[in-house]
Design a protein around this nucleic acid. Structure first.
Length: 313
DNA sequence: AATGATCACAACCGCCTAGAA
DNA sequence: ATTCTAGGCGGTTGTGATCAT
């Protein structure tokens, strides 16, 4: 539940000047008209000049998420869904980054779609069998997932994974891993039992990406990544990883239709490094910081750790 | 028809960062 | 160097619509 209104301090009096809640068609029209005719200046000025009793922040949100002319409306296409799942498996809850690869879609829209639809769908897939009813193209993959999912809580906790899956505040979202070294893999937040499926994003992290803030990669995403790995020879595996890196740097135009995207995946062999990939995410320093803290995680150590489980490989 | 449950999505909140003062 | 402000982001909540009973 939302916190109750705080007392009537000066700040609250200031805040109360502004209207809240759903936007009326009149307000939409005012903002739209102002933005299309003279949409300049900071958002608080825009709010004032457009004659709205809204704070600038609210206007910004409304414009970005609803009024912007270039927004794509309607249901997500299967290609978009697939792309969201894939990108999420790689970078987690970085909705704005995911949205930047889906022209006409907003981070809010994708986040809502994920939380209300995709997450549930993936969860249902998971629960229909002891592990999943997903038919892997490679039996090794099913063994691997079976092994992972069969891990007991104490076994997982014994893995020296210092990751922060709390992600309940955006402060944690600013750090790829917990700056405090806090290991949130306690009994209350098992990576495979909550909605986040942390381990999947850890595998994503092996592609050269850091684990997403708050984890939140999916089993399906993990499978997609691992299937790609297994579908290539060892030499090809490296190329696959680079292709994934490329995905996150695709210009919008490349994503506009699936055929372009497929063609892109099939032909582009450029090398990119993490700095290039994440340069626009402002996380370069965080990447370095995370590595300094010794919180990095890699597939090899993951494989070593889980290879000791009796039902694995 | 009434009511409660569920869903989808709009909007807000709190935090962070960058840049200006 | 510090403070302030705007903008950006992810998490969370509110609300209307739809469905099930």
């Amino acid at each position: 539940m939302r916190k109750p209104e705080a007392g009537l301090g000066k700040e609250n009096v200031e805040k109360n000047k502004y209207r809240k809640g759903l936007w009326s068609p009149e307000e939409d029209e005012k903002l739209m008209r102002y933005m299309l005719s003279d949409g300049q200046g900071c958002w608080s000025d825009i709010a004032r000049n457009a004659g709205l009793q809204r704070c600038g922040k609210s206007c910004r949100l409304r414009w970005i998420n609803y009024l912007r002319p270039d927004l794509k409306r309607g249901a997500f296409s299967p290609q978009e869904e697939e792309l969201i799942v894939h990108l999420h498996s790689l970078i987690g809850n970085r909705w704005s980054q995911i949205a930047s690869r889906l022209p006409g879609r907003t981070d809010n829209e994708i986040k809502n779609f994920w939380n209300s639809t995709l997450k549930k769908r993936l969860k249902n897939n998971l629960s229909s069998t002891p592990f999943s009813n997903h038919e892997s193209s490679d039996p090794r993959l099913d063994m691997m997932f079976g092994g992972i999912m069969a891990m007991q809580e104490h076994e997982i906790m014994s893995m020296n994974l210092s990751m922060d899956s709390s992600s309940t505040s955006s402060s944690s979202s600013q750090l790829p891993f917990s700056a405090t070294g806090h290991n949130s893999l306690d009994g209350s937040s098992m990576p495979f039992l909550d909605n986040n499926f942390e381990m999947a994003s850890m595998v994503g992290a092996t592609n050269g990406f850091l684990q997403a803030p708050g984890g939140c990669a999916t089993e399906m995403g993990m499978r997609m990544i691992m299937e790609e790995r297994l579908s290539y020879g060892s030499l090809e595996a490296q190329r696959s990883m680079e292709v994934e890196r490329e995905v996150l740097c695709l210009p919008h135009e490349e994503m506009n239709n699936r055929s372009n995207f497929d063609e892109y995946l099939g032909t582009n062999e450029q090398n990119l490094n993490v700095e290039e990939m994440f340069g626009d995410m402002g996380s370069h320093g965080q990447v370095q910081e995370s590595l300094k803290m010794g919180n990095e995680w890699d597939l090899e150590s993951f494989m070593l750790d889980i290879s000791s489980f009796p039902h694995f490989l």
